[in-house]
Design a protein around this nucleic acid. Structure first.
Lengths: 186, 186
DNA sequence: GTCTATAGCTAGATAGAC
DNA sequence: GTCTATCTAGCTATAGAC
């Protein structure tokens, strides 16, 4: 068995970078190949269903990362709800590289991507809301307040990433994370 | 002079619909032609610089609409600041068709579009912030509070449109507009 | 498992008849 | 001003050598 020229992690990192910045239709196989260091044909060996499978794999991989880092921090029963929030927000900062990176769910949310990944996008967003909903309950919120705050938190994250990119001003993302934290803790 | 087969308004409407839903790279000339009712070659007659010019035209056209409707309502000195807000939000609902339509600035905000339309997108977003900043001042806010609220309003609009699409739940957009209104008026 | 080469198609864009 | 026809380049995807 010939050794893999590129490790799986590097492949995933390359695919992720391209899909995040270019979206589904904007990501060409040429770019995906260059970003992973593999040739196009080799990519098809790893992902027989082509571009769609590559995007699905990236979606699942980021989804797992969020589960194992963001949501785990938010639900960690070892520490206080206040501390969970702080830790969760730290993981969110990491996920979006301080506001430099866009959200993959959003990047795949133009018409073509939405049609293909409708379910993953919907579930992914619902998971975010659920994670913050549960945190709200732990902080003593009513169910309706917990829901309201959870939805607003997702709106804040998505909106601030958009505006951060549009205005090329990372402070908007940073301030929004601070606002989310103080929202829950006041 | 041969009569134009399709009125300019219909052409713009078709281009707008496609760019909004598909983004810049996702919008193909085939689709743009079908949506406008013109053949590709005819589109090139109207827009000699091709797809980029079509997107620029749509950007400018929506920008003007926003100026003449949303911002005008928000700045109308004939009525009270409270009423301006109500009217402005009505225009925003119209702009996004109650949450069914995405924001063009966002649709053109993936890498390729950002590179081409950086300036229009940045100016467009800054205009939104300025409009709400001025409204805040009229309501007696300090400059720092007015800035904070204006940025948050843009974040709310962009974020709620994303989450509305992702969850396929238009109530998120509706509730966000209500929240923006009560934010300013309480 | 990776590569070169290429198929088959669609993209954006143009020429020229009417 | 609109059309049919076509160009070239790029796309996704596959074949087959190593």
């Amino acid at each position: 068995m010939r050794p893999q020229k590129v490790l799986d992690d590097e492949i995933l990192a390359g695919l992720t970078k391209v899909f995040r910045s270019k979206g589904y239709e904007g990501a060409s196989l040429k770019e995906l190949a260059e970003a992973t260091g593999l040739k196009k044909a080799s990519l098809y060996h790893r992902f027989p269903n082509g571009k769609q499978e590559m995007a699905e794999t990236v979606l699942n991989h980021i989804g797992e990362w969020v589960q194992n880092n963001v949501f785990l921090a938010l639900a960690d029963e070892e520490v206080s709800p206040q501390m969970r929030l702080k830790n969760g927000i730290l993981q969110i900062t990491k996920l979006y590289n301080g506001g430099e990176e866009t959200c993959l769910l959003r990047a795949l949310s133009m018409k073509a991507g939405l049609d293909l990944f409708n379910e993953q996008i919907q579930n992914g967003m619902q998971d975010w809301i659920n994670a913050f909903y549960n945190l709200g309950l732990e902080l003593g919120f009513s169910t309706s307040k917990a829901t309201k705050y959870a939805v607003q938190t997702l709106v804040d994250i998505q909106g601030s990433l958009i505006v951060t990119r549009g205005l090329n001003d990372i402070k908007i993302f940073e301030e929004t994370l601070k606002k989310i934290e103080s929202n829950y803790l006041e």
